[in-house]
Structures are given as structure tokens and as C-alpha cells.
Amino acid sequence: MSWLEGELTTLALCWRIERRDGVTIGLTAHDRDIVWDGLVHHAAPGMLPSAITRGAGLDPASMDVTGALTSAAIGEADLLAGRWDGARVAIFACDWTDPGSQVALGEGTIGAVETRSGMLTAELRGAMAALERPVVEATSPECRADLGDKRCRVAMAGRRRFAVVTAIADTLLTLDAAEPAANCYGQGRLRWIGGANSGLEGAILSSDGATVTLRRPPPVDAPGRVLLIEGCDRTLATCAGRFGNALNFRGEPYLPGIDLLTRYPGG
């Protein structure tokens, strides 16, 4: 890497950020835009990473990036709405006179985000951070599978429906069509595909007729088109009665729980 060995280096740090909805942006700490791989990395001189540590160990690798919030790149409204949650980030150093000469510094996903006085601090979690998660499941009376996944095996083709949100009152949304069965969207998902909330997704707490109640209010109080995905309360009774899928139930409803320790003779 001769470009790093000269008396005068032309080093620039770059970030490639890919959101879960497909939107991709590029940023660089250089004072001019850098074009690489068909993507313009816009100049953001205030974006600075913390120390980058690379090793062969199994410790979770993480780092922080701090910079100013700008509406042209990463806005505070989009951060609070969750559009950047889980976005993939690749960081590299390059020769700004020849962006093809570069060194990969790390990649990961955006974790905790903090905004204060117009400044953004984002945690980048590396691949080793996945080792922090449990590797085996614990027993539970409720099903541990997600409705429609490869363990549940319930066909979801007929359990996703489009609708239009006509009114919003905090977490209560009114739709232009009623649900096909009582509380069929409860514990499901709502995905915005139109309007100011387009691309965002929220958890449904319950549904009743032509209304659904979300766990959290939508970031923007604006009606729009949505995709409704049915949910499941993960009980054996629902699995058997509503879905006819007790054979694939992934729980232990009859296993004694912690309440067994509190029982006493005659209780």
C-alpha cells in the first residue's frame, strides 16, 4: 500500500450505510465528495469514529461514530422514527485522489443511537456481538416460533392484507376495511407502504373490527396505505383452534413452572 507510505498521505475515512428499506447513503470525513462504486460519499467533515480495534479474538467488536445531524444525510426525525435502526455500515479508509486504493476498517449494524444538541452518537455493533445472544432456547408455556416461519409452517399467503388508514388517534388506527376474524391482527405487524410513514413497521397490540391498536403511536400522524400481517398470541389453544397447527407448537404448556415452588398442602 504505497499510498500509505509516502511523506504526504491523502487519507479519507468513508462510511457506506444501507438501511433495511434499501436506502443507501455514503459519507466521508473528507472536505469534498468522493465517488466510489457508483455511490457518492458526501462530505461530512464532522463525522468522526472512535478508536477502531481489530483482533482475532471472540470479544464483541463495537465502536462509536459521532457527528452533526444534517437533514441532507441523517436527520433527527428519521432517527427517532427508527428508519436507521439495524442499518448496515461499512467503514473504510481510502486515497481521496484514487478511491480504489482503500483499506477496510470494519462493518456492522447500527445499535444504540443518542442525539443531543444537534449531535449524533451511534454505536456500531460488529458481527461478534451476535455471540451475546443465548445459543439455546429456554422452556416456555408459549410458542417460541414466529407465525409463518420455518418452524411454525403456517402459510401466510392469505394472512397478509392491504388496507388504508383513514384516521389516527394516538395508538388507535381506523381502517377502511374490517378484519376477517376477531382480533386476527393482534400480536401481528403493520407495515406502512405509503404516506409520510412509508417504510416503517410497527407491532399491533390488538384489533377490533375496522380498528387496530399499535404498541406505539406512528412517528408521523398521517394516514396512508398499510400492509397488515396477522399475528398469534402463541398459546396452544390458538395454535390448535385457529390455525390447526398444534403439531408444530414450539412450547411446553404442561411443564410445571416456578409457581410449583409456591404451592403447599391444601393450597
Rank of each mutant, 00 (worst) to 15 (best):
T10C: 07
L11H: 03
L11P: 06
A12K: 15
A12Y: 09
I17E: 01
E18G: 10
E18Q: 12
D21T: 08
G22D: 05
T24L: 12
I25G: 00
L27M: 12
A29L: 02
A29N: 11
R32F: 01
W36G: 02
L39S: 09
L39K: 07
L39F: 07
H41F: 13
A44T: 02
A44Y: 11
P45T: 02
G46C: 15
T53E: 08
G55K: 01
G57N: 09
L58H: 07
L58K: 14
P60I: 10
S62R: 06
D64A: 09
A73G: 13
E76I: 08
D78V: 03
G82P: 00
D85M: 04
G86V: 02
V89G: 02
F92H: 05
F92S: 08
A93R: 14
D95M: 01
D98E: 09
D98M: 09
G100H: 12
Q102T: 12
G106H: 02
G108Y: 00
T109R: 14
G111D: 01
A112R: 13
S117T: 15
S117Y: 06
S117A: 11
M119G: 04
L120F: 04
T121I: 08
E123S: 07
L124H: 01
A127F: 14
A127D: 06
L131K: 10
L131D: 01
R133E: 10
V135P: 06
V135W: 03
V135F: 06
A138Q: 13
A138S: 11
S140W: 03
